[in-house]
Amino acid sequence: METRRFLVSLLFGVSFVFFETWSNVNAWEPTKPVEFIIMAGQGGGADKYARLISGLVDKHNLAPVPMVPINKVGGAGAVAMDYVHGKKGDDHTIMITLSSFVMTPIAQKLPFNYKAFTPISLLALDNFFLWVHKDSPWKSVADVVSAAKERSLKVGGTGSKQEDELIFTFFEQRAGLKPFSYVPFKGGGTVAANLVGKHIEASVNNPSEGLPHYPSKLRALATFAENRHTGSKQFKELPTVKELGYDISYQMMRGIFGPPDMPKEAREFYAGLMKKVFDLRDFQGFLGKNVLDAKYLKGDDFAKWVEKYNKLHVEVMNKAGWAKDTTARLSR
């Protein structure tokens, strides 16, 4: 009898202490399910991350409420951004972003740009490789460059005036190539399939999209990242385009933003939650397998990073004539 009573009171005491510390550490917590806005369709890259994160939050019990992924499709992210932009001050909405987060406001006339949103955290940087078919005569970046100086190469990528075309344009500008004939496709997997089927001559697919055909059908010539992927088993020898003498480095942002003027406590909570997700072995394993660079930033560091990221896009897109004021006259 005595021991039983003791155990019960001990349990109460422990849970009380636990509860106290919990509520002290986390001054603010969401009280209802969080809307996790995805600025792309189901099955796309951003969608994959959002569902992975929301699943991991559930599986490891990282938050008191579920994160509900909601796709807002349309206008290369403009519809999602507009929705979140309209939720000024809301503390139960966050958005997972990709490059179109900075590119779409540059290319389209929208009443907002990246600055309007509350930066929460950066989670990873997605990589781009230069791929050709295994039967292609091009064995190095130099081979591709010399061919592209002769004629316009047929290349493909995901979407129009988005990151894939940006990289090709960047490449074209820095290496002085003839303009590529760029074919837009709806998804990265389709781009890779068209390269394997020899319908196009080169692509800048993400590693995860090229891997199903590597090394049986596709050849990776270089990475557009700043540094080599020393942590990857398959690609640690892959040169960077930069070390080959073309001043290009580009990676895709996988980050989380909140609505304009999100309260500071909420911002802290989500940044902390994302750090917990980031540190999970499941998440790191996912990044490693798909050759992504893990990079966590939050608060002002992240804001500064986005500013620099935006500047690069403005520069390349202006030069390519994609920014809204210049392209009214110049369409392709």
Partner: peptide, 26 residues
């Protein structure tokens, strides 16, 4: 076999494959 979704639903299932730590392909 190729990591290319034949339909939008297959695209979501493909996302699952990556999340479970599998790489599609032959």
């Amino acid at each position: 076999t190729l990591g290319i979704p034949g339909s939008p639903t297959a695209a979501v299932i493909l996302g699952g494959l990556y999340i479970w730590g599998l790489l599609p392909g032959p």
